[in-house]
Design a protein around this nucleic acid. Structure first.
Lengths: 227, 227
DNA sequence: CGACTGTATGCACAAGTGTCCACCAATCCA
DNA sequence: TGGATTGGTGGACACTTGTGCATACAGTCG
């Protein structure tokens, strides 16, 4: 296998030196393979930040020292993993968006498109949901950054949709944020649920989201309204 | 080893076994002191589940082996810590509730009462917010259980309040859940914010919560309404 | 060919971990 | 007084961890 496979998009924009190794020994293991190995280890019980250098190396089938050729740290690997998960996440959402415009219930369609890969075996997604807010500062900001990407895309969606239907929409940014956090919290919760109970959770989540959207329409942004 | 401490219901007001040691050597260090020590170590960067037996013992000033006299495991300690944090949390909320009924804005008063101890140095609270969903299955269910307690109390609050003001309130359970998750997500986020930015986050959170409450009033529980 | 270079490995080390064991210390009850 | 019981200690064990150093491997270039 060649490293030459560009695969440029981990962060969306990093140039990432596509011509790294023109001379010297061919890499027997790629950076991506290491990420995969780490993913395989980091089950539900183990925080991403508890990953061990030797452990990852073992899983990937290389010597512990070789790890340093690809990452300087396990933290660095964790951050890369989060960013990759975030990309995967937003890709899912974009697909959901495409599907949603032609369906009856935008909320339901989008949410189901979001939940489905979680019910499947998308380790990346599970990882992202779980990682939340523990770990090194870099890791935390990495997660937060991805969440904000998510919120931003959702906000412009909400804006477009409201305009399309001639709805009022007050504070779309906050509506997007509330929606995001609810969805993530519920998706995380669904990870510990039996598949049979997930459908119910989806229904409940839809109700919550509709509350937010209804509220965003009814909201008056003036201050000091009655409690 | 026996836990010996019956701890019949984590729910409320645990009697806390006042007569544990009637015979034998006087304990030089209490179970609580160990919890405190663990709390002191578990900073923002370290997940609760990465605590080390020896580490906690060192911080508490006892021999590693003595740890076993109080907890069978670091996991057990972590769960105890979470439950303690949950209690502290609900105590705060009850106080907020008392204050809130005599104030103008229930939402703002409650939320500020919630955020204030976080801005202070309540390590317990920070811990709880952060721990979210990583760690052993026992730890995760412990966190989830505390969240549900929280939701239940909030739900009955919402119900009472709606009745008092003659408001409609559809699906109060889900309104409570949405509220809870938003508050927790935002509180967690505020942990990484400079104090000067927290006020803004509180304001934004209030808007989000009002959206939910407004939506819960406007909501029609019938199925299949227009998207 | 040999020189050069990036990749991967083996070995070793100090440090840290959980846990077992025997032992001491204090306190109560008979 | 003397068990009985509980709390705490110290030493040792087998193990894992991150990392430094020297060295072998596999290419590419002149």
């Amino acid at each position: 296998m060649k490293t030459a496979d560009p695969q440029p998009a981990i962060t969306d924009a990093a140039p990432e030196a596509p011509e790294r190794a023109r001379v010297g020994r061919k890499a027997t293991i790629t950076r991506e393979a290491l990420l995969e190995a780490a993913l395989a280890i980091a089950g539900p019980d183990r925080g991403l930040s508890s990953l061990t250098l030797r452990e990852v190396a073992r899983e990937a089938g290389i010597a512990p020292n070789s790890f340093y050729r690809h990452f300087h740290d396990t933290n660095e690997l964790a951050v890369a993993l989060i960013e990759q998960a975030g990309d995967s996440l937003r890709r899912i959402i974009r697909e959901a968006r495409v599907r949603a415009v032609s369906e009856r219930s935008v909320v339901r369609t989008s949410l189901e498109a979001f939940m489905e890969p979680i019910a499947e075996n998308d380790q990346l997604l599970k990882l992202f949901l779980r990682e939340g807010s523990v770990g090194s500062p870099e890791l935390r900001t990495a997660v937060e950054r991805q969440l904000v990407f998510f919120e931003d895309e959702l906000e412009s969606d909400l804006r477009r949709f409201a305009e399309l239907r001639n709805h009022r929409l007050e504070e779309p940014h906050l509506a997007a944020r509330a929606t995001t956090r609810i969805v993530f919290a519920m998706a995380t919760r669904s990870l510990d649920l039996a598949p049979s109970e997930r459908a119910k959770l989806v229904d409940e989540t839809i109700v919550m989201l509709r509350m937010v959207l209804l509220g965003a329409r009814a909201f008056r942004s003036q201050h000091g309204q009655p409690g």
